[in-house]
Design a protein around this nucleic acid. Sequence first.
DNA 1: ATGATTTAGTTGATATATCAATTATTGTCC
DNA 2: GGACAATAATTGATATATCAACTAAATCAT
Lengths: 144, 144
Amino acid sequence: MEKLEGIIFYTIDKAIKTYRQFAQKRLYEAGLEITIDQWLVMQALTEKPDISQNEIAEKVFKDAASVTRIIDLLIKKKYLERKMHDSDRRRFHLEVTSVGKTLMKDIAKVVAQNRAIALHDVTQEELGMLRDTLTVIINNCKTN
Amino acid sequence: MEKLEGIIFYTIDKAIKTYRQFAQKRLYEAGLEITIDQWLVMQALTEKPDISQNEIAEKVFKDAASVTRIIDLLIKKKYLERKMHDSDRRRFHLEVTSVGKTLMKDIAKVVAQNRAIALHDVTQEELGMLRDTLTVIINNCKTN
DNA sequence: ATGATTTAGTTGATATATCAATTATTGTCC
DNA sequence: GGACAATAATTGATATATCAACTAAATCAT
């Protein structure tokens, strides 16, 4: 068996974990009280305000159960509110509060900086190839 | 703010999560009772039998606390044993049992297949560039 | 040699991941 | 239109991630 260092999935794992730690630390240092995972949910809601919890789960690659719990925390923090859904009483309408909107704006700057630092010296071409190769891997692994 | 789909870290996250789900499912279907994270710890121990728990944590990008708990489970499953360390009574000598060794051999085949499937149609050159770009990102994010 | 510091590992608290089971509601089909 | 299946979300159980506090042992410094 090949050593861990030689395995590409080990490197991919290392890259995303290193970036997440880096990004989380910088959010924390900027006084922004949110985790990366909570931000992902907020971002999905910002992009599509009428999204359902199940759709959020799919979008951020999480389980519906995880999304339920993350939303519970975001509500506790007053960044979100659960309201009645117009046409489907099984669903909720999730509303980003004004506090939540302000927070998201503040985060945007830090997130942009994080990416710029993390991608320093990576060309557009390299970025494109990175994306293409990862997309091939993703499709190869689709179970269905 | 750019949409999630356009963010490279979102794609990296998606790739590693898709692969992990794929790999875990195939391990489970092969009747192998181990998680990917537990396998990582076993593999680190197989590569360096005298490794310490802290060194394992560093190698597999986990917290020492996580490693303690993963090892507890591996011991409960009889794949590992904690023994006295020769020269340092703070440490343990972790020993892979014969059951554990057999398991690791069985896993090796499945893991090799998983990688072959996941990397189908990815050339050596693409793999090298993927690794290089990820390494740049990892170094850019090193906090220290 | 002893007092301070460092290191190895554990434990508790909280956040997240995953699966299975459950509830409430909606949709389908005859 | 009423039984049945599908869907949206929650909850419980277990595994993992992370941080902080802690214990025990080793090392360092004078």
